[in-house]
Design a protein around this nucleic acid. Sequence first.
RNA 1: CGCGGGGUAGAGCAGUUGGCAGCUCGGCAGGCCCAUAACCUGCAGGUCGCGGGUUCGAGUCCCGCCCCCGCAA
Length: 314
Amino acid sequence: MTKDNSTKIVFFGTPKFAVPTLQALVTEGYHVVLVITQPDEPVGRKQVLTPTPIKVEALKLNVPVKENLWEIKNYNADLGVVVAYGKIIPQAILDLFPLGLLNIHPSLLPKYRGPSPIQSAILNGDDETGVSIIKLDEQMDHGPIISQIQVPISKDESSPTLFDKLSVLGAELMIKALPDYVAGKAKLEPQDDSKATYCEMINKEDGLIDWTNSADQIERQIRAYAPWPGSFSEFDVNHKKINIKIISAIICDPVETRNCASLPHDNQSPVGKFVIKNNQLVVQCGHGALLIEKLQPEGKKEMPAQAFINGYLK
RNA sequence: CGCGGGGUAGAGCAGUUGGCAGCUCGGCAGGCCCAUAACCUGCAGGUCGCGGGUUCGAGUCCCGCCCCCGCAA
């Protein structure tokens, strides 16, 4: 492997997704002179001030960590590597890097520019997604593509597993792409802007299930929005309304196998209500129905549907 | 001190004004049946989160602690 240890790299990243890339860079012997990450934030129920995963990793690797972008001036860096940093980096900062900045984006750009590409790919039922490495330019997720790799999306893929996969693949792809790029031999393929699509920041309300949608669509939503914001709905249980998060479900379609093949999917049950059929928990949707596997009532831990039936619906 | 719900059998829940700790499912044994995830009979399984206190008596009331979860990113 051709490495140029004289290239000084500044790494920008914040969440867990960025960690494998930082690790790989250091392990492969690249000279990471500085890590820029977001400030510690209060986290969790107890609002404990917590450093970002990247900060924790950087300290472990003995790389200096700063939150102030202007610190970069003191490091004479050549190249920037940006992985889920979480903020727009101002042009004046970009100009400090002679070799520019590379960015890992977890989609097949120009598809799914924006902040939620992984969730969007699952939500839309895509067969595949991927990871792209681009050179940052002045527009969001717009720069020329240096490298790209496809990844199939299985029928039961959920956001957490896909995050993990793409996180690791992104790191590998970066390590493969860097030598040529640093040597000035990389091909820069401009994106076809006419094919660009965009995804939005996800909000809590996006997790609210609209049971008039098709079972198909709701099932994809459940996988896409795990673990946050989750997919939830209000149900009538023993004359009380409780908010319940659906953790996983199977589409009740006679074509599908599994044990729901014999279930009556009569399209007559009330939409969005629990129905017990053959001792299984089913919710009728606008089209088709969902067999609930795991769920979580508010204030409770997640539990199998069977346990929910035994404890709540008897 | 951000707001709130909770910890009772392997799982999920009940437990009234303090008075023999219960229900559904699961497990085990037996029965019925062509057969079964159905049905019948029986059995096992509990330091009621931890530590104090009040009381003749605490799952239940009081104080302290630990843990889990929903909202709040």
